[in-house]
């Protein structure tokens, strides 16, 4: 550990220009520790991490602490504005919205993040491979991407529901089965932009000097893709990833309107938003809180992503 610190201290004065030159020689370990140091100094990123962490903990622990269960409803208390008893107000059936935001957050955050990861990993892998090798494989994978872009998602989703819903339920139980199906479906439908973005960067990067250099010193193809090129395509991927979380959370709500998804009585943020929209004038809290929760999550993920990217880009010093 001390050796790493030493190394970095030595390099810091070299400044930005020197960094680019030293990059290929760097050891990965120092890259990460360097990144951590940079990240810590990115105030918004740190704030984002805290908010995100807070939301995750709140949604995991919250439902146990909050006295009103998420599935309890009392029509006598329907459509009440925020109060001490119901800090986020109540829905048209008299659900406590706070309890539902906490509970639904588990699903929404998990779906958002996991589906995004599926999309990004799938997209990155497919495109990294095709972008690097080019030629026939590129052509084939690119046509596949075209195909996925062209398929209208609605019938595909109906087909998937029809083919797999019962099987997944039988195999993993209702909740886990549905969760897996949903993240796979959302991920499986959203990897194409990532793939094309990564490929575009690849086309340009693989002609660059440092790749040639790596070739010359005998680094294998896999090494070049994963160690040298991929980290350089991170920037658009991180944007796609943060936007992907929001998209996944919203898409999840759309899915439940196709009968694909969690049973209709399970609240998720997207679904609560959709359910609340008709009440927007008369009970704005039904829209405001789920909408705010999605916004806050996505915004914090974005800042964390920003911080990560800055931190992982060795050429740049963070702006303080």
């Amino acid at each position: 550990m001390s050796e790493v610190t030493e190394q970095r201290r030595l390099k810091t004065p070299a400044g930005a220009v020197g960094m680019a030159v030293t990059l290929p020689a760097r050891k990965p370990r120092s890259l990460w520790s360097d990144a951590w140091r940079q990240f810590r100094h990115h105030r918004l990123a740190v704030a984002g991490s805290f908010v995100l962490l807070f939301m995750v903990i709140a949604t995991i622990v919250g439902p146990f602490l909050w006295p009103i269960p998420w599935n309890h409803f009392d029509m006598a208390e329907a459509l009440q504005g925020p109060s001490l008893r119901h800090p986020f107000g109540t829905s048209d059936l008299g659900h406590d919205i706070f309890a539902r935001i906490l509970w639904g957050g588990r699903i929404s955050i998990a779906v958002g993040v996991v589906a995004m990861l599926v999309a990004v990993i799938l997209g990155t892998l497919i495109r990294a491979v095709s972008g690097y090798f080019g030629g026939f494989l590129d052509s084939l994978l690119m046509r596949m991407t075209d195909m996925f872009i062209s398929i209208p998602s609605l019938p595909l989703l109906l087909l998937i529901t029809y083919l797999f819903q019962d099987r997944m339920k039988a195999m993993f139980g209702i909740e886990l089965g549905m969760f897996l199906l949903i993240v796979l479906v959302i991920g499986g439908l959203n990897w194409m932009p990532v793939a094309r973005l990564v490929r575009a960067s690849f086309l340009s990067l693989k002609q660059k000097e440092f790749v040639e250099a790596a070739h010359c010193i005998g680094v294998g193809t896999g090494g070049i893709i994963f160690r040298h090129i991929l980290p350089n395509t991170l920037s658009p991927v991180i944007v796609a990833a943060t936007l992907g979380v929001a998209q996944a959370i919203i898409t999840e709500s759309a899915l439940s309107f196709l009968g694909l998804g969690f049973p209709p009585d399970i609240p998720t943020w997207g679904r609560m938003l959709y359910d609340g929209i008709n009440w927007i004038e008369f009970a704005p809290w039904m829209v405001l809180f789920p909408g705010g929760a999605i916004f806050l999550t996505v915004l914090s993920i974005n800042y964390v992503g920003d911080g990560l990217r800055d931190a992982l880009d060795p050429r740049r010093m963070f702006a303080v």
Partner: peptide, 20 residues
């Protein structure tokens, strides 16, 4: 949801399903 709530009070477990 309303009916499921009453059924579960009775001790009948209900799985809700909604279809296009």
């Amino acid at each position: 949801e309303i009916i499921k709530n009453a059924f579960e009070q009775l001790g009948i477990k209900v799985e809700l399903k909604s279809i296009e």
